[in-house]
Design a protein around this nucleic acid. Structure first.
Lengths: 115, 115
DNA sequence: CCCTCATTTCGGGTTTTTCCGAATTGACTC
DNA sequence: GAGTCAATTCGGAAAAACCCGAAATGAGGG
């Protein structure tokens, strides 16, 4: 992931509604959720949400596929990986030691979250 | 890390100059770099950069400490950890399996970056 | 083909971000 | 305390993001 892509991803996630959308879709991954259902859950206007979905999709964080009448949006989990990789590789680039520390803390974090 | 803090961090990183600042400081971690030096390296006006530094600091990504006349800014590596943790815990919250996959890919990423 | 449902596009007005020069503050030196 | 260097604050203008109602598009069903 290059710097421009990372900026797009950060910008996409730097908004309350969009971050909530992403979290919601991650929870339902790998299944998709129809746009209107997302709007209802998040109490957002359809036209407003459509713009947000477009931003998230353009940033590579979402996919949208038609199913009958509705379009189901799904989180791209590999995008999370890319973003995490970007954060860590930029860190490790200068100092390997830092990454070791971070990964150690990370393991604990994941242990906690995975139960 | 709560959602609001994550949004602040994402917003702070979602800007070319600010992301470059952060990358630069991560490379020099745990040492700090004076504001004017950062400005020169990134070809930015001091007043503009000052605003960016303030945003990054408010988001908890940087610390600034006076040393004689200058203020040295340093990246907070624990902030990267928090942010990564936020991304992964929000992911794992719904589906543990996803995290395992991501961490596997992550190990490879780190291996590559650490040489 | 008409109607309906799901979603997007459009137009606008409001709010926020961004930038930089000029002036200011703070710290150190003599 | 005058001079200097480092950094921030201030003012205001240009650009971008945001929101939402109304209209348009697209897919199915009768």
């Amino acid at each position: 992931m290059d710097q421009d892509s990372a900026i797009d991803a950060f910008a996409a996630l730097a908004h309350p509604t969009r971050l909530s959308v992403f979290k919601l879709l991650v929870q339902h991954a790998p299944d998709g959720v129809p746009a209107l259902t997302i709007a209802e859950r998040l109490d957002a206007k359809p036209s407003t949400l459509s713009g947000h979905l477009s931003v998230l999709k353009r940033a590579g964080l979402l996919t949208g596929t038609r199913h009958q009448r509705e379009i189901r949006y799904a989180a791209r989990l590999d995008a999370i990986n890319s973003l995490v990789g970007f954060l860590l590789s930029d860190c490790c680039g200068g100092k390997v030691q830092n990454c070791k520390d971070i990964l150690t803390l990370l393991d604990a974090e994941v242990e906690r979250g995975s139960t």
